[in-house]
Design a protein around this nucleic acid. Structure first.
Length: 298
DNA sequence: AAGAGGCCCTGATAGC
DNA sequence: TGCTATCAGGGCCTCT
């Protein structure tokens, strides 16, 4: 589901929710793993620490706690975080807290309290509200790291941050000029540039007028500049519109995004190109549906 | 050693 | 109605 815009929307919503009361009071896991094992025991290190910032790197969220503790959260294909108000009694009773901790072993207790629904796997409880992670497909993950160094190590091989201006077209050219793969695969390669997934790769290439099937090494200077520009424009537009909700993306307040209404090609196979009227085509690339206009994109 | 393909998992939808 | 097949926003691992 979530590409950079959706993760950024999530980041903002989470931070807006907890910034005034950032001390983690409880952490509850309703299963032992997602994509990777959850920090059932180590997670207790986080209790009573404050979240000082929530950062984003590509499609990853980073909860920065005081005392050099970090949580890396990835939404996989179907993950969402939501902010939910807590009843006063729930947030203040330590007995309740004890009971919640035990729900690591027994998730049915949590559900019976009517706060938790199907596929709600993690609860981060703050004063007066909680953050709940929901993920039907469970491709997401939640990792605890105990130093900034480990965080940097974790992200050391990741590509350029598209909305940052600390890299240039030349830098990107150096990374892709020897690539034999097509430009769409290159755009989706997180080692080259981060945050772009299947939807936005299609949309960016349409706006740049570049065929997804063009070899990365054969992109000329002018097209490369267009791709970079449109990457920034499309991602920023999507953020401004609350992200894209194809099936189920919701922001932390449970609201759907709006950017899917602006899709030029994604999911529009057989429909008329909004620019030239030609039929939008679809073909698989590395197992992912790829949409493009063969008349507008070369 | 870059690049393609399989796989993890559930749910929605299409077709019979 | 109910079965089966296919597909879905990601990324890691394996194989070539």
């Amino acid at each position: 589901m979530p590409e950079l815009p959706e993760v950024e929307i999530t980041r903002r919503g989470l931070w807006a929710g907890i910034r005034k009361r950032p001390q983690l009071q409880d952490l509850v896991f309703h299963r032992k793993d997602l994509r990777y094992p959850l920090p059932l025991q180590n997670g207790k290190k986080l209790l009573n620490h404050r979240v000082v910032q929530i950062e984003r790197r590509g499609k990853y969220l980073i909860f920065v706690f005081d005392h050099d503790l970090f949580v890396i959260s990835h939404l996989g294909m179907s993950g969402t975080w939501r902010v939910q108000q807590l009843q006063l009694q729930q947030s203040l009773h330590s007995e309740q807290t004890q009971q919640l901790l035990q729900t690591v072993q027994n998730s049915s207790q949590g559900r019976s309290q009517n706060r938790i629904g199907p596929h709600d796997h993690i609860e981060m409880i703050f004063e007066g509200l909680e953050l709940i992670y929901n993920d039907p497909r469970r491709f997401g993950f939640f990792l605890l790291l105990d130093s900034r160094k480990k965080v940097e190590k974790y992200f050391e091989n990741m590509g350029f941050e598209p909305l940052s201006s600390d890299w240039s077209a030349d830098d990107l050219y150096k990374k892709i000029h020897s690539r034999q793969q097509n430009i769409k695969s290159a755009l989706m390669d997180q080692k080259i540039i981060v945050g772009i997934g299947n939807i936005y790769a299609c949309e960016i290439l349409f706006r740049a007028g570049v065929s997804p099937w063009k070899r990365a090494s054969r992109i000329n200077q002018e097209s490369l500049e267009k791709i970079i520009l449109q990457t920034r424009v499309v991602l920023q537009e999507a953020i401004d519109r609350g992200g894209s909700s194809i099936q189920d993306f919701k922001n932390t307040a449970g609201h759907l995004g709006d950017f899917q209404k602006n899709f030029s090609v994604y999911g529009r196979e057989g429909e008329a190109c909004r620019k030239c009227g030609h039929k939008i085509r679809q073909r698989k690339n590395q197992g992912r549906s790829t949409f493009w206009c063969s008349k507008c994109q070369h």
